[in-house]
C-alpha cells in the first residue's frame, strides 16, 4: 500500500511504536488516525479483555507519535528509529 512500493527507494524516516498492552482499553483511536495505517488491533486480548494495537506493517511506521498523542490511556507511543 506504500507509494514507494514500485520504486523500492529506501525510506528516509523509519519508526516504531511501543505498546504497553495492559494499559490499552481498545478505543482504536491510534489505528484509525495513524497517517500510514501501520497499526491493527491484535487478535489477542490483554489482561482487561481488550484488543491492543500491534504494528502490523512495521515498514510503514515513521515514528510520528500521532498514536501517542491520541491514545487516551497512555498505552502507545511512536519513536523515530532512523532519520536520513
Amino acid at each position: 500500500m506504500s507509494d514507494n512500493e514500485g520504486t523500492k527507494k529506501p525510506k528516509k524516516v523509519l519508526g516504531t511504536v511501543h505498546v504497553d498492552r495492559d494499559r490499552c482499553k481498545g478505543c482504536a483511536f491510534c489505528i484509525e488516525f495513524c497517517p500510514t495505517h501501520a497499526l491493527e488491533l491484535d487478535k489477542g486480548f490483554n489482561a482487561k479483555g481488550y484488543h491492543p494495537p500491534v504494528l502490523a506493517r512495521p515498514d510503514d511506521c515513521n515514528g510520528c507519535d500521532l498514536c501517542g498523542l491520541y491514545c487516551p490511556d497512555f498505552s502507545i507511543f511512536g519513536v523515530m528509529t532512523k532519520v536520513a
Binding site: R23, G26, L69, P72, D73, F74
Partner: peptide, 22 residues
C-alpha cells in the same frame, strides 16, 4: 503522570486522556 495511579478511571474511548497527552 503518577504512574502508580494508572490505569485511569476513564472509560474506553473517552477523550480526557487524549487532552492530557496534548
Amino acid at each position: 503522570l503518577r504512574l502508580e495511579r494508572m490505569p485511569s478511571i476513564w472509560c474506553p474511548g473517552c477523550g480526557i486522556g487524549t487532552s492530557v497527552n496534548c
